Simulated scan of single mutants.
Amino acid sequence: MSGLARLEPGSMTDAAGLALEPEPVPAEQAVSGGPTTAYTALDEPAAADGVGEIGVWEMTPGVMRDIEVDEVFVVLAGDATVEFEEPRLDPIELRPGSVVRLTAGMQTVWTVRATLRKIFISR
């Protein structure tokens, strides 16, 4: 996990070009392909305004299971499918420009075909 790449008021960052430090997906989450994930926060959580965190996350090709947090994200790059194990929902296809809402506790399986990078806002 990378440190905080602070996004100050009136400033900008290149979320698509940020250098991230990949880590292997934990064995209990990895399904196949040996994916890695990487992450950096752009802002510290501020409970007073209801926003938990703003950050950039990516996953390399492979398959992993996850239990989600409450977040909205926009895909910046990549190609992936997210399957929903709980609740049972239709799978979604992710490509640059996809905007997705997840709620806390959703159980998902992420199949990444081309490294996926997203910017997210969580609560």
Rank of each mutant, 00 (worst) to 15 (best):
L116C: 07
S11W: 05
L76A: 04
M59R: 10
V99H: 10
D14V: 07
V100A: 03
V69D: 02
S32N: 07
V75H: 00
P91N: 08
V75K: 00
V109G: 02
M59E: 05
G78M: 05
P26K: 13
V69G: 01
S11V: 07
P91F: 06
S122G: 05
P87C: 06
D14S: 09
V74F: 01
E86M: 11
S122R: 00
D14M: 05
T81E: 06
M12R: 07
A47F: 13
S32D: 10
A27E: 15
A38T: 14
T103D: 07
G3V: 13
R88F: 08
E68A: 13
D70I: 05
D79Y: 03
S11K: 07
T115P: 14
R117F: 02
V99R: 11
M59A: 11
T36P: 08
S32Y: 08
E93S: 12
V51F: 04
D66M: 13
P24L: 10
M1L: 14
A114W: 00
L102K: 08
T40A: 15
T36V: 14
R65S: 14
M1H: 13
G55Y: 07
Y39E: 14
D70G: 08
E23P: 03
M12Y: 10
V25G: 06
S98R: 01
P24K: 12
F84K: 05
T103A: 10
